[in-house]
Amino acid sequence: MNTNTHDRQGGGGGGSFLSRLGGLDRRWIFLAMGLSIAVPILLKLRFPEVPGPMARATFDAIESIPAGSRVLLAFDYDPASAGELQPMANAMVHHCAARGHRIVFMALWPLGKQMADATIKDVLLEFHPQYAYGTDYVQLGYKAGNEAVVKLMATDIPQQYSTDAAGAALASLPLVADVKSTTDFKLVASISAGYPGAKEWVQYANSANPEAFKLVSGSTGVQVSQLLPYYPAQMEGLLVAVKGAAEYEMLVTAAYPSADKPDLLAERLGQGRVRMGPQLVAHLLMIGLIILGNIAMVAGRSRGGAR
């Protein structure tokens, strides 16, 4: 990579402070952004969240299916998006388990299986140690093929997954022994960072059988624009970025607190709210930068006009 990208732009000798702003070395902006996130983290800034309609809809969708229902959780993301999506995954797994739903995990992303494994260890078995593998939860793991995997899940799961991730035949696992397709689930949730993800679940699984199961999704801020047209007709609930995660965390922890591990639950299901702290300062910085950039432009233009 060349180092020219960091060179000062414009600048020049004279001129007012504002007109010279345009040539500001961008490393100062990097520093400001870094500090705006680091300082609130160190100060542990937290603000109250008011759950919005989409987070409520997601919560209600999981509440509305009968206790003990079979649900499919697709971990369609990787560590690059875990900052936004892991809080949603943690809260959703705890929510499902607290309702007694039996959970089947899978992944459309190669690293999604690892994310699901971590969530099973850190949340499911930590707060619901009674959950037994094979009867209460199953990890199907990852399959290559993107939307073709979803399409095949909608018609013939055993053809796709002859075994679970550990190599056990599906027929030997009571939870999935009789599963034929996605219609055998009451709810499908995709924690989604992009392609393939929630959009493909709508297109290839839900559209073929819109009444068979409820579909909810947790999405990154980047991807959510693509998913908005599907809400609420094709997707009952949608968690929008880390704010959606924080709101959903609030709803879940309020409804299903942990009697024996309250502090750990607050930590594991509080990541979304923790990450909302830096948002305030960083968003204000972003607004400030845009305004400053425009002022610099106007100042530069008037300076040019004066010449």
Partner: peptide, 20 residues
């Protein structure tokens, strides 16, 4: 991989200052 994507926060800030 997580840090590589986290870097985009810095570039978004810089773009906001220069391009918007």
């Amino acid at each position: 991989t997580a840090t590589m994507f986290a870097m985009l926060a810095f570039y978004v800030a810089s773009a906001a200052f220069r391009a918007f």
